[in-house]
């Protein structure tokens, strides 16, 4: 099960968030913003404290009840996927979301880079992807 998707821009600002599962405790928008900023910082720290130079930041955060998958693009945009602990292939799903982002956000002339994403086509395609993933997974 995919629970939520967050997209964080290279400055640590939250530019997109969606919950997909009903009946779970919800965060307020403000809490989401704080969480995005915090994650951005933690991600930067994890990439620095690695004993091996040139390491990427945190990729998975695992707990008893959920997992957070993080995929950072070359340009510094982070895709965060909050899932069930048993979710297979979440990594591949973040790549697919990246693809949708590249198609429907970056190729949209009405989108201002680094700003919150309010694009219907992106929304509907993300929904479709989540439905597919949740049906098979």
């Amino acid at each position: 099960m995919l629970h939520a998707l967050l997209i964080i821009n290279k400055a640590g600002g939250l530019i997109y968030n969606r919950d997909f599962t009903d009946g779970l405790a919800k965060l307020t928008t403000n809490e989401y913003l704080v969480m995005a900023g915090t994650f951005h910082g933690v991600h930067a720290i994890t990439s620095r404290i690695s004993p091996v130079p040139g390491s990427s930041g945190m990729e998975v955060l695992e707990t008893d009840t959920f997992k957070i998958f993080c995929f950072q693009t070359l340009t510094g945009v982070k895709f965060l996927l909050i899932t069930d602990p048993s979710q297979p292939n979440a990594d591949a799903t973040t790549r697919k979301v990246y693809e949708l982002y590249a198609d429907y956000v970056m190729k949209n002339p009405f989108y201002n880079p680094e700003m919150p994403i309010r694009i219907e086509l992106f929304d509907s395609n993300v929904q479709k992807l989540v439905r597919q993933t949740n049906a098979t997974g």
């Binding site: 198609d103 429907y104 009405f110 309010r118 694009i119 086509l121």
Partner: peptide, 9 residues
């Protein structure tokens, strides 16, 4: 294909 026109336009 990739263009979503915003509501105000």
């Amino acid at each position: 294909k990739f263009i979503a026109v915003p509501k105000d336009m």
